[in-house]
């Protein structure tokens, strides 16, 4: 490894300054604020606050609404990760079979990724809006009492669909790359060994994709946990009732809508712990990632 030596002590710091400033202002400062507020309680008018230790945490963790949000988050994340990954893998495998126009299909597949979460949410909301959605009518014709504005499960299905749709592109790219990294001759060897395509997929391709799958599992979970705020906000705002209120959405709701700063901050801190744990977990496994060859 080559070490670059700067002539001045100051220059490196100057070069790093913009990035450091952004990190400090937008990450460390709010994080510190969250920590501070999570141990304070404001009076009803927001004029003064008192130190209450871990009372906010205790309150949050004993709040049935919070436990509901945790449950919603787990269900939502698992569904999104599962569908986004299986659909993406299916599509990536199918694209491999296309002879003509492979590049065209791949490009099309990548587009949803460029759509902002809120826009993606609106898109799905419009398609499935019970009164004017293009796809709501056929659903009703099929005998489904379609109304995601009233039915919690349907609302969940809608946000899961929107969040999944947006994430498929990303997973697709990684799966395509993963599939391309598997030497063709392995599948030919399997074909000669007597394996059907399906058998070869489950015994050769899928195991060799494990590193990709594992990486995507972590990325998708993190995505579903934290990056889907825009979609939920646009489609259901956490409703109906609290049926699509995830942990992140509840932080926003309690803090910025209901202005209960202490609770909201405590929830943020809990989320921060979850992110740190997930990241540590991811790094450990990516370090150990199996390399075949």
């Amino acid at each position: 490894m080559r070490r670059t030596v700067f002539p001045h002590k100051l220059l490196p710091w100057l070069l790093l300054a913009p990035q450091l400033a952004i990190t400090l202002i937008f990450f460390y400062w709010p994080a510190a604020q969250a920590f501070r507020q999570s141990v304070l309680r404001e009076d009803p008018f927001g004029l003064s606050s008192t130190f209450v230790g871990l009372a906010n945490f205790r309150k949050v963790l004993n709040d049935p609404a919070y436990l509901n949000a945790a449950q919603v988050t787990v269900v939502f994340s698992l569904l999104v990760a599962f569908f986004a990954m299986t659909i993406a893998l299916f599509l990536a495998v199918q694209v491999e079979k296309i002879v003509r126009g492979k590049g065209f299909y791949r490009t099309l597949m990548i587009w949803p990724y460029a759509v902002a979460p809120a826009i993606a949410g609106m898109l799905w909301l419009f398609m499935f809006n019970p009164s004017f959605g293009t796809l709501a009518w056929p659903l009703r014709q099929l005998g489904i009492a379609w109304n995601p504005l009233l039915d919690g499960e349907q609302a969940m299905a809608l946000v899961v669909a929107a969040a999944t749709w947006k994430q498929i592109s990303y997973n697709f790219l990684f799966f395509v790359a993963g599939l391309q990294a598997i030497p063709k001759s392995l599948l030919e060897a399997a074909a000669i060994d007597g394996a059907s395509r399906r058998h070869a997929f489950w015994t050769i391709v899928f195991p060799l994709l494990t590193p990709t799958t594992f990486f995507l599992l972590v990325v998708n979970t993190v995505y579903a946990l934290f990056d889907t705020f825009g979609i939920i906000h646009a489609v259901t705002s956490g409703g109906p009732g609290r049926s699509t209120e995830t942990l992140v959405y509840k932080v926003y709701n309690d803090g910025f809508v209901n202005l209960i700063m202490g609770d909201s901050a405590a929830q943020s801190v809990i989320l921060m712990v979850i992110v740190i744990a997930l990241t540590a977990f991811q790094f450990r496994f990516i370090e150990k990632r199996v390399h075949y060859g």
Partner: peptide, 8 residues
């Protein structure tokens, strides 16, 4: 096969 194509 030339590259052996062993299942890794």
């Amino acid at each position: 096969f030339q590259n052996y194509a062993l299942y890794p």
